[in-house]
C-alpha cells in the first residue's frame, strides 16, 4: 500500500486519484456517527451521498490502492482481509442504526461520486423494494453442529455374523470386510441423521421467519475443530419482535436433539438484500 499523501477530495467529489467506495444504501438523509469511522481509507471521511430519494453511504478512497490487483493482494492476506471486512461492517452497522439499510457487496467502487449517483440511481426501484422488505427486520444467524462421533463398529459380530452354525473360521479377510462394512454403515447412518436434523431445525426456524436462507456450511478446516461437525449454517430474516421466539425455538431443538445451536445477531440483513 502506498504511503503518499493524497489530496483531499473537493466538494463536487471528482478529485483526480480517488474513487468512490459505496458501503450501503438507505433512506435516512444523514446517518449519524459516520464521520467518526475510519472506513477503508483513513483520512477520507465516510459520508452520505444523496441519490434522489435514497442515500448512499460512501467514502473517497485512493484509486491506486483499490485496483483489482490491490484487492487481490489485500484479500489474500488474512490481516488485511479482516481489517477490510470489519471496517466495511462497522460502517454498515453505523448506517443501519438510523433505519433500514441495504449493505452492498464488499468492494463496490465507482470512478466518482457522480458515477455512483448515476449507477445507484438506475437501481433505485430495486433498492426501494429491498428497503421496504427489510424494514422492521433483522437477520439472525444460526449454526448447528453435532459431535463428530467416533466411528464405532458394533462390538459384537455384525448382523450376518450371527449365523454361528456357518462353517468355522470365516477368515481374517472376511472379518476385516465386515468390520469395514459396519464402519461404513455407521457413518452413513450418522450422515443421514445429521442431514435430517438439519432439515428439521431449518424448517422449524423458517416458519418463524419472513425469509430464510441457507449459507454454505463450514468444514472442519474453518470451524477449527474436528470434534464437532457443522450441519447447518443459515440466516433468518425476522421481525424485531420475533427474536425471542427464535431463541426459544432454538433452545427447544437444542434440548430435543443434543445439537449445539449457535445464534448470532441481530445482523443488518446482509443475506436478504440480494434477491429482490
Amino acid at each position: 500500500m502506498t504511503t503518499t499523501q493524497h489530496t483531499a477530495p473537493t466538494v463536487d467529489g471528482t478529485t483526480a486519484g480517488t474513487a468512490t467506495y459505496v458501503y450501503a444504501v438507505c433512506r435516512q438523509l444523514a446517518p449519524a456517527g459516520l464521520s467518526a469511522l475510519p472506513g477503508l481509507a483513513e483520512g477520507f471521511p465516510v459520508r452520505a451521498l444523496r441519490c434522489g430519494t435514497l442515500t448512499a453511504v460512501v467514502q473517497h478512497v485512493p484509486a491506486a490502492d483499490f485496483t483489482q490487483e490491490a484487492w487481490e493482494q489485500r484479500l489474500s492476506d488474512r490481516t488485511e482481509l479482516e481489517r477490510c471486512a470489519r471496517a466495511h461492517h462497522e460502517v454498515v452497522v453505523a448506517a443501519a442504526a438510523g433505519g433500514p439499510t441495504a449493505p452492498l457487496a464488499l468492494a463496490t467502487l465507482y470512478r466518482s461520486d457522480e458515477r455512483a449517483r448515476e449507477a445507484l440511481g438506475q437501481d433505485a426501484a430495486r433498492f426501494t423494494a429491498v428497503l421496504d422488505r427489510i424494514a422492521g427486520h433483522a437477520e439472525w444467524g444460526v449454526k448447528v453442529s453435532l459431535p463428530a462421533g467416533s466411528p464405532r463398529p458394533p462390538a459384537d459380530p455384525p448382523p450376518d455374523g450371527a449365523r454361528r452354525d456357518a462353517p468355522a473360521a470365516p477368515g481374517a479377510g472376511r472379518a476385516y470386510l465386515e468390520r469395514k462394512r459396519g464402519l461404513h454403515r455407521a457413518r452413513e447412518h450418522r450422515h443421514d441423521q445429521a442431514l435430517r436434523t438439519a432439515e428439521d431445525i431449518d424448517a422449524a426456524l423458517s416458519r418463524l421467519a419472513t425469509a430464510a436462507r441457507r449459507l454454505r456450511t463450514h468444514g472442519q478446516e474453518l470451524t477449527g475443530t474436528a470434534a464437532r461437525r457443522q450441519i447447518l449454517n443459515a440466516a433468518y430474516l425476522l421481525p424485531h419482535e420475533r427474536a425471542g421466539d427464535l431463541a426459544a425455538e432454538a433452545a427447544a431443538w437444542r434440548a430435543r436433539t443434543g445439537a449445539e445451536i449457535e445464534l448470532s445477531g441481530p445482523w443488518v440483513p446482509y443475506s436478504f438484500v440480494g434477491e429482490v
Binding site: V25, P103, A105, L106, Y110, L120
Partner: peptide
C-alpha cells in the same frame, strides 16, 4: 461469519473499477 455475509450476499451492483472482484 462476517465473510459469509460480506462476500456472498449484499446488493450486487456493477461498480466501475473492480467488477471481477465482486
Amino acid at each position: 461469519d462476517l465473510l459469509d455475509r460480506l462476500l456472498s450476499t449484499g446488493v450486487v451492483v456493477s461498480g466501475d473499477l473492480v467488477i471481477a472482484i465482486a
